[in-house]
C-alpha cells in the first residue's frame, strides 16, 4: 500500500472511530468511559492522516518539478533494495520517501507491506455488519459461577482447601477480594456468607442493576431484594445449567471491552413471555436459598410484572 492510500486509510479509521463514538454505538463494544479517549484518538488519526496525505502530495509535486515531470524514481539504496527483495521492509525503519525508492527500484514490490490492508477489516465490519452488543449467546458461552471470589464453594476435595479456608485469613468475608479463598460447600449451605449492603434507593420498585441484584440475593444479610420488589433491566436468555425449565433475565458486565464480558443472570420459572434477546424491564423479588453451587449461584426470582423495553444506551453493566 502506498503512502497516499495509507494516509487515506488512517484518516478513514479515525473518521469511523469518531462516527461510532458520536453516534453512541461505541457502548456496544467498550465501556462508556472510553468515549473521550476514542474521540481524542479518532481526531488525532484524522488530522495525522490528512497531514500525511498533504505531505506526500507535496513530495510528489517537488519530485515532479525536480525531475521535469517524471515522477519519483530514485536510485535504490543497497540496504533498502535488500530489504525489499526479501520482503522485509520494516515500516518503522523505512525512511520517508523510500517507498518511492522501493516502487521505483522494484516495480513488483510497490506495496512493500500488505499489513495496512488488514485495517480495512474492522472498518468494513463496522460499516457493513454493524455488530450488535453481545446477547444471550454470549451469556450461555461465558456462563460460570456467579459466586464472588472469596464467597464461592471450593471444589478442592481435600480438607485443607475447603474447611480451613472457610475462616479465611482476612477474617471472614471480604468483598471481591479475588484471593481464591473459599467457603466449603456445606459451609455455604449452612452458614451463608453475608455482608452489609447500603439501603436500596428510595421510591417504589427502585431500579438496580442485575449484577447488584445478584450480589444482594446471594450475600445481603438483610435480604433487601427478597423483601422489596426492585426493577431490573436485562434481556431474555435461556435458563442456565442446573435449572430445568424457565428462563433467565440476563445482562453482561464488562470491565473494559466486550472481550471481557461476564454474564449476570437471574432465573425465572415458567415459559419466557418474549423471545430470547428481547430487552425487558421487570419488577422482581429474589427467592431465598435458591442459588447454589450446582446452578452456578444463579438466584431465582419471582416476577411481579414485566414489560418490553428498548435496548438501553449502555447495554452492559460494569
Amino acid at each position: 500500500m502506498n503512502r497516499q492510500a495509507q494516509s487515506v486509510l488512517m484518516a478513514l479509521v479515525g473518521g469511523v472511530l469518531l462516527a461510532v463514538t458520536v453516534s453512541g454505538r461505541y457502548t456496544s463494544y467498550v465501556k462508556p468511559g472510553f468515549g473521550p479517549l476514542l474521540l481524542l484518538a479518532g481526531g488525532i488519526l484524522v488530522v495525522a492522516g490528512v497531514a500525511a496525505l498533504l505531505l506526500s502530495l507535496r513530495d510528489d509535486r517537488r519530485r515532479r518539478a525536480e525531475h521535469g515531470g517524471v515522477p519519483a524514481v530514485a536510485e535504490p539504496v543497497p540496504a533498502v533494495a535488500a530489504a525489499a527483495e526479501t520482503g522485509h521492509g520494516s515500516t518503522g525503519a523505512v525512511p520517508a520517501g523510500d517507498e518511492a525508492v522501493l516502487q521505483g527500484g522494484h516495480g513488483h514490490d510497490h506495496d512493500r507491506s500488505r499489513a495496512p490492508w488488514l485495517l480495512l477489516a474492522p472498518v468494513l465490519v463496522l460499516l457493513v455488519v454493524a455488530p450488535p452488543a453481545l446477547g444471550a449467546e454470549a451469556v450461555t458461552r461465558n456462563a460460570g459461577s456467579q459466586a464472588v471470589a472469596g464467597m464461592e464453594a471450593v471444589q478442592q476435595p481435600s480438607g485443607a482447601g475447603a474447611e480451613d479456608a472457610a475462616g479465611g485469613t482476612s477474617g471472614g468475608y471480604a468483598f471481591n477480594d479475588g484471593s481464591g479463598h473459599g467457603e466449603g460447600t456445606a459451609a455455604f449451605a449452612k452458614r451463608r456468607p453475608t455482608k452489609q449492603f447500603p439501603p436500596l434507593p428510595a421510591g417504589e420498585d427502585p431500579a438496580i442493576g442485575i449484577k447488584e441484584f445478584v450480589l444482594r440475593a446471594l450475600y445481603d444479610a438483610d435480604d433487601s431484594v427478597g423483601d422489596t420488589p426492585v426493577t431490573v433491566v436485562g434481556f431474555v436468555a435461556p435458563a442456565g445449567d442446573g435449572w430445568t425449565g424457565g428462563y433467565s433475565i440476563a445482562r453482561l458486565a464488562i470491565s473494559c471491552c466486550a472481550a471481557d464480558a461476564t454474564p449476570m443472570r437471574i432465573h425465572v420459572d415458567g415459559t419466557p413471555p418474549y423471545p430470547v434477546d428481547t430487552w425487558v424491564s421487570a419488577v422482581v423479588t429474589a427467592r431465598a436459598g435458591t442459588a447454589a453451587q450446582d446452578n452456578d449461584y444463579v438466584p431465582a426470582a419471582d416476577v411481579v410484572s414485566m414489560q418490553r423495553v428498548t435496548q438501553p444506551a449502555d447495554p452492559y453493566e460494569h
Binding site: V20, Y29, V30, L37, V125, L134, E137, C257, A259
Partner: peptide, 17 residues
Amino acid sequence: PSGWSTVFVAICVQATP
C-alpha cells in the same frame, strides 16, 4: 460465530487509543 464480529471490533476499538 455469534458475537465474533462484536468481540473483534471491541478489541480493535479498545486498543486504538
